[in-house]
């Protein structure tokens, strides 16, 4: 193992955001631990819904749904740091559920980046419990960004779209 390889491994670990990595070869063992303040508690996986470790007896003591999106998933990142040059109004999820960009797997998405929408136009569907919830645009304008991938779970109040108001 040479210094370049070690550097590469360190970079990989830093980029991945994992807290600890252990590597073992025949004559070599390496443990990398990150001490970043980012790495607290086991972050909920982005693919799960709701707060993850709810206690049946006291669900209200589970982390609030708003707190559930982990700091390291893509939509949350986009939400936390909207690209500074893009001004716009965020359309947020009014409920927890699964985000669908189209009405069915075969259909075209309701909107694409660059589309002009009117207030009240349907932007997407969020499904929870077979409740298909059509989410309407709060404003008229142009879709600047779509912040969530199709069929991904979204949390309450999670930003879904960035709309540049007309």
């Amino acid at each position: 193992m040479d210094i370049e390889q070690i550097k590469a491994i360190l970079q990989l670990v830093a980029d991945s955001g994992v807290a600890e990595v252990e590597l073992e070869d025949e004559d070599f063992r390496m443990v990398v631990k990150t001490v970043s303040s980012q790495v607290v508690a086991p972050a909920p996986q982005p693919t799960h819904f709701y707060a993850q470790q709810g206690n049946a007896a006291a669900p209200q003591q589970a982390p609030a749904p708003q707190a559930a999106p982990s700091a390291d998933n893509a939509p949350a990142q986009a939400a936390a740091a909207p690209a500074p040059e893009v001004n716009g109004v965020e359309v947020k999820a009014p409920i927890v559920g699964t985000f669908y960009a189209a009405s069915s797997p075969e259909s075209a998405p309701f909107v694409k980046v660059g589309d002009t929408v009117q207030k009240g136009d349907v932007l997407c569907i969020i499904e929870a419990m077979k409740l298909m919830n059509e989410i309407e645009s709060e404003v008229s304008g142009v879709i600047k960004q779509i912040l969530v991938d199709n069929a991904q779970p979204v949390q309450y109040d999670e930003p879904l779209f960035l709309v540049d108001p007309a």
């Binding site: 009014p94 409920i95 419990m129 077979k130 298909m132 919830n133 059509e134 989410i135 309407e136 709060e138």
Partner: peptide, 11 residues
């Protein structure tokens, strides 16, 4: 199958 339209103002 329930369908609804909602905005942040509520269902």
């Amino acid at each position: 199958l329930f369908e609804t339209e909602s905005s942040q103002a509520g269902v």
